[in-house]
Amino acid sequence: MEIPYTVVARRDTGVWNAKVGIWLFLASEVMLFGGLFSAYVFLRLDAGPGDWPHGVLNVPVGTFNTAILIISSVTVVLAWAALKMRQFTRYRIYMAITILCGVVFLVVKLGYEWPQKYVHFGARIKESELAKYEKYLGNQHLLAEGFAPRKEITGHLHNPQALHDPNIKEYEIALDPVNADPTNKKMDRPHFFYVPPTEKIGIVEKADVEYANMFLPKHSSYFATYFTITGLHGAHVLAGVLVFCYMLLPASTRLYRQNPEHLANRVEVAGLFWHFVDLIWIFVFPLFYLL
């Protein structure tokens, strides 16, 4: 039995069925991501001065990934246009570039950005003990400059066993530059390029710490929303890549030989999904990396 309305439009909707389906699906996706973005906005608005992390993400890497996704959106449209003009070889080339872009995005995200967070440590100091760690926090300087105070000492944990061993009373942290030289004016704003922790070791007593952890979802609302939204977005990118891979398989070549317009419609639907995923990133990037 042949499935109707895969190429020609239905008279009542004015479009072929898959297009109605993808737009209904994208509407549900808008609600999903809209809810998550709303949660992010409300958590951030509710955070007190100095409670929301700034400048902990790598801006050049985020910019690179943004460029990769924009390029992939261009190539997926070019792949669709090539099919419409019955240029199958060109279609395959553009589709392969789109897949490559998606894979590069995921490798950068899962192979570089996320693992950087897993080894980064932050100890949030109790409000009553902030003055004791002035040499790492530089809050007098920040107050004079009109900036929000720092409440967290970050870097690479030198004694990771301290996280689980109650007999160890102190955290030894290879300090981030912002805590190694807190009164330096260059530390008042986030860095454009990633700056690794220094060799200077800071000692923080466990008794003075409100909470301490690696930069994982349980660290703070910021990292919980960061990992949730970028993780869900990454899952969508992976789904898009898998669909595009299917469109390069021999089954799609056979469909092209039988009915090229049908394959063009499939590519258009997948391209609409891909554009939506890329559009989500256009909002994720400034929210998490810049603001």
Binding site: D278, I282, F285, P286
Partner: peptide
């Protein structure tokens, strides 16, 4: 269609690039 969505996407990308420049 994908053409219209692509143009919309390029408009948002342009706005993002302007925003990054202002940042």
């Amino acid at each position: 269609s994908i053409k219209g969505f692509h143009i919309l996407f390029i408009i948002f990308s342009t706005l993002l690039a302007l925003g990054v420049g202002l940042w």
